[in-house]
Write a protein that binds this DNA or RNA. Structure first.
Length: 413
RNA sequence: GUGGGUGUAGCUCAGUUGGUUAGAGCGCUAGGUUGUGGCCCUGGAGGCCGUGGGUUCAAAUCCCAUCACCCACCCCA
């Protein structure tokens, strides 16, 4: 038997109903904020991700699905969505028409990691990007939109954590201070943190080892080393969120694993998820578009993981979509008539299916019930001879015969 | 990549100190009822007991290896 690839999965009914609801809710909520949908290919040149996410990040160093195409070009399955959206923004010269663009998208992402709870090699992200708007209120509104989405799905137990990563020059000088501080205490750091000291010193701040936490306790924090403008930006984000009634906590230790972020960084966490507790996250990336060869354009975005969201909604049963009719023809002549009648009903707006299996009536009623059909339409030899059909209301169990010519949405009762 | 845990029917699980032909519930299916659902009754299909090797008269059971899945580290959605 050929089996699915490790870390990937099939999405089948009834779970697929919940997914459909999640996606529909996301695009519906985003639409109310003026977002339009966009989509990009799943495969890109590897270079796009290396240049945007950062050469030294884990995602690029060890988590990408990369392969040569037939001409030997290095291609990668996308590990996240923002890089492609930025590429599309630049390549299609969107800024020449209107530099402000608000896009939402969804699709599978790929990272070669060891699977565990809430972590797969293919995972589905829903994301939103705002191009061309530098204002802090945009950051806040985007975050509020994310929270409104979760609220629409009645997700509980979420916490919003906010931080500022400063601008690149501020971060460079802060990073030097942090490295100096950590180097003084390097004898007490764990092996992982010694490595982080070189690769990504800010990661030491959220190490879970007690010894490292003690050192991190007194370490300098980015938030205390912001310039006037970035500080004001952060304060504006906070005050706007407060004005909008969005609860949050400032977590001065949030570090993002993607290099392109500056200023606003946030994570939406759910403790019920286990170790992989971030259900969504994002931030501002004002220099990425220019770095990838586009016009200098500020931007802010976020993404959320649908699988993790599904874990949070596991106890929510999403009912199978209802059908208006379940057509049960008996015999070949009846089948031929039923398939035509069903087409007419659908053209008139009804939802339903015709059963061609020829199984016993007893069985088909049970199936009609499990498919959540409102009515069963029974067409046998007797009815066909009279040009009639039995309409049985599956809820009240009352049934009556009507003329086939009278069959329509209104007579399905 | 490194740990730990778990592998028996489609699903959830029993399976005695190693001992006949490996079981149950749910689900699927046929019938009881030639054409009327959820309950009940009777039958049926469905298993290389994850895989390979070893010990033994005898292995689902003991040993070794391997694979898969899960959880955690790491990292992130």
């Amino acid at each position: 038997m050929i089996k699915r690839i490790k870390g990937m999965y099939d999405l089948l009914p009834p779970q697929s109903h919940l997914w459909r609801r999640i996606e529909a809710t996301f695009f519906d909520v985003a639409g109310r904020y003026g977002f339009e949908t966009a989509a990009t290919p799943i495969v890109e040149r590897s270079e796009l991700f290396a240049r945007s996410i950062g050469e030294a990040t884990d995602i690029i160093e060890k988590e990408m699905y990369t392969f040569p195409d037939r001409r030997g070009r290095a291609l990668s399955l996308r590990p996240e969505g923002t890089a492609s959206m930025v590429r599309a923004y630049i390549e299609n010269k969107v800024a020449n028409v209107d530099p402000v663009a608000k896009w939402v998208y969804g699709g599978p992402m790929y990272r070669y990691e060891r699977p565990q709870k809430g972590r797969n090699r293919q995972f589905f992200q829903l994301g939103a990007e705002v191009f061309g708007v530098p204002d802090a209120r945009q950051d806040a509104e985007l975050i509020a939109m994310a929270m409104a989405f979760f609220e629409a799905l009645e997700v509980e137990g979420l916490s919003l954590e906010l931080n500022s990563l400063g601008d690149p020059d501020e971060r460079r000088s802060y990073r030097d201070k942090l490295v100096n501080y950590l180097t003084v205490h390097k004898d007490a750091l764990c092996a992982d943190c010694l490595r982080r000291l070189d690769t990504n010193p800010m990661r030491v701040l959220d190490c879970k080892i007690d010894a490292c936490r003690a050192i991190a306790q007194d370490a300098p924090l980015m938030l205390d080393h912001l310039g006037d403008e970035t500080r004001r930006h952060f304060d504006d984000v906070c005050s706007t969120l407060t004005d909008l009634g969005v609860a949050f906590t400032v977590n001065r230790r949030i570090v993002r694993g993607l290099d392109y972020y500056n200023r606003t960084a946030f994570e939406i966490k759910a403790s019920a998820l286990g170790a992989q507790d971030a259900v969504g996250g994002g931030g501002r990336y004002d220099s990425l578009i220019k770095e990838l060869g586009g016009p200098p354009t500020p931007a802010v975005g976020f993404a959320l993981g649908v699988e993790r969201l599904v874990l949070l909604l596991e106890n929510q049963v999403v009912a199978t979509p209802q059908l208006d009719f379940y057509f049960i023809p008996m015999g070949e002549a009846a089948q031929a008539e039923a398939v035509k009648q069903a087409a007419l009903l659908r053209a008139a707006g009804a939802c339903g299916e015709v059963d061609f299996s020829g199984r016993r009536l007893k069985h088909l009623f049970a199936r009609a019930e499990s498919r959540r059909a409102r009515t069963a339409l029974i067409l046998g030899e007797n009815e066909l001879a009279k040009r009639q059909v039995v309409v049985r209301n599956l809820t009240t169990k009352e049934q009556h015969e009507i003329l086939l010519d009278d069959l329509c949405l209104e007579t399905l009762e």
